[in-house]
Deep mutational scan, measured.
Amino acid sequence: DDVELRDGDWRVELKDADEEILRAVEEAIKNGASEQELRELAERLIR
C-alpha cells in the first residue's frame, strides 16, 4: 500500500509521488476531504 494515512494526522505520505499528485492531495486535504475520499483520490492518481 503506497498511501499511508494516520488516524487524526492528515499528513499523507505518497512514495514516489510526483508534484501533481502531491498538489492534488494537499488541495483535497485543504478542502476537508474525508480519509475515505483521500484514499480514493490517491488510488486514482497512483494508477
Rank of each mutant, 00 (worst) to 15 (best):
D7K: 05
D1N: 11
I29P: 00
Q36C: 05
A17V: 15
E13S: 13
G8F: 15
A42K: 06
L5F: 15
A42F: 15
L38D: 00
A24N: 03
I29A: 13
N31A: 06
E4C: 13
L38V: 13
A28T: 00
E20D: 10
E20K: 10
E20Y: 14
I29Y: 15
N31R: 10
I29E: 15
L22D: 00
D9V: 06
W10F: 05
E4N: 10
R44F: 13
D1E: 14
E37N: 03
R6S: 14
R11T: 04
L14H: 02
E26F: 10
D1H: 13
R23D: 03
E40K: 04
G32W: 01
D18E: 07
E20C: 15
D16P: 03
L45S: 01
D1G: 11
R47Y: 15
V25H: 01
D9Y: 08
D2R: 10
N31W: 01
R11I: 07
L22V: 13
L45Y: 04
A42Q: 05
E35N: 06
R47M: 15
L22Q: 08
R6W: 15
I46R: 04
E43I: 09
R11W: 14
L14N: 02
D18M: 03
R6Y: 14
D18P: 15
V25Y: 06
E4M: 11
E35I: 06
E35P: 06
E27M: 11
R44G: 08
A33R: 04
L45C: 05
R39Y: 07
D1C: 14
D18G: 14
R6F: 14
G32A: 01
E4L: 11
A42G: 01
E4G: 12
W10S: 03
E26G: 08
V12K: 10
E19A: 07
K30R: 12
A42Y: 15
W10A: 02
R23Q: 07
D9N: 12
E37K: 03
G8S: 13
E40T: 05
V12H: 11
E19I: 14
E37D: 05
S34C: 02
E13L: 15
L5T: 10
A42C: 15
W10N: 02
N31C: 00
R44P: 00
L22C: 11
D7W: 10
Q36H: 08
L41R: 00
E20H: 09
E27Q: 09
R39T: 03
E4V: 04
E4F: 05
G8M: 14
L5Q: 06
K15S: 07
R44C: 11
R47Q: 15
E19C: 14
I29G: 08
D18Y: 11
L38I: 13
E43S: 06
E19N: 07
Q36N: 08
N31P: 00
E26N: 03
E37L: 03
A24H: 04
I29L: 12
I21E: 01
S34M: 03
R11S: 08
Q36P: 00
A24D: 02
R39D: 02
A24Y: 08
A24E: 11
A42M: 14
R6E: 11
L14C: 04
W10Y: 04
A17I: 10
L22R: 10
A17P: 04
L22P: 00
S34V: 01
E43N: 08
A17G: 04
E19K: 08
I21Q: 02
I29S: 14
R47W: 14
R44D: 09
R23K: 15
L41Y: 02
A33L: 14
G32R: 01
L5M: 13
A17Q: 09
A28P: 00
R44S: 08
R6M: 14
V25Q: 00
V12D: 12
D1K: 10
D9G: 07
D2H: 13
L5I: 15
G8E: 13
D16T: 06
V25E: 00
I21W: 05
W10C: 12
A24V: 14
G32T: 00
I46E: 03
A33T: 04
L41T: 00
D18W: 09
G8A: 11
G8C: 03
R11H: 02
E20L: 10
D16K: 09
E27S: 06
E43M: 11
D9A: 10
A24M: 15
D16C: 05
E26L: 14
E40R: 04
R39M: 08
K30A: 14
L14Q: 01
G32S: 02
R6T: 13
R39I: 08
L45Q: 01
D9L: 06
K15M: 11
K30Q: 09
I29H: 11
E37R: 01
G32M: 02
A42T: 09
D2F: 11
A33D: 01
E20T: 11
E27D: 08
D18A: 05
A28V: 01
G8I: 15
D16Y: 15
L14E: 01
I21F: 05
S34Q: 03
D16H: 12
L14Y: 07
V3T: 13
E27T: 05
R44T: 06
D16N: 11
Q36E: 11
K30S: 09
E13K: 15
E40L: 09
E43Y: 08
D2E: 08
R47K: 15
L38P: 00
L14F: 09
L38K: 00
L45N: 01
E19M: 09
E27N: 13
E13T: 12
N31F: 06
E19Q: 10
R6C: 11
E43A: 10
E40C: 06
Q36D: 11
L22N: 06
R39K: 14
G8W: 15
K15H: 07
R23L: 11
V12P: 05
E4R: 01
L41E: 01
E40P: 00
E37I: 03
R44L: 08
S34Y: 01
W10V: 04
I46S: 04
N31G: 08
K30N: 08
I46N: 03
A42R: 03
W10D: 02
E37H: 05
D7L: 13
R23E: 04
E26M: 12
R39S: 04
E19W: 13
E35D: 09
D2S: 13
L5D: 08
A24S: 07
D18T: 12
R23N: 08
D1Y: 13
A28F: 05
E40H: 04
A24G: 01
E43T: 08
A42H: 08
E40D: 10
E26V: 10
R44N: 07
L45P: 01
E37V: 04
D1M: 10
L14G: 02
G8N: 13
E13D: 09
E20M: 10
E43H: 11
E37P: 00
R47P: 09
L5P: 05
E4H: 14
L41D: 00
N31S: 12
L45A: 02
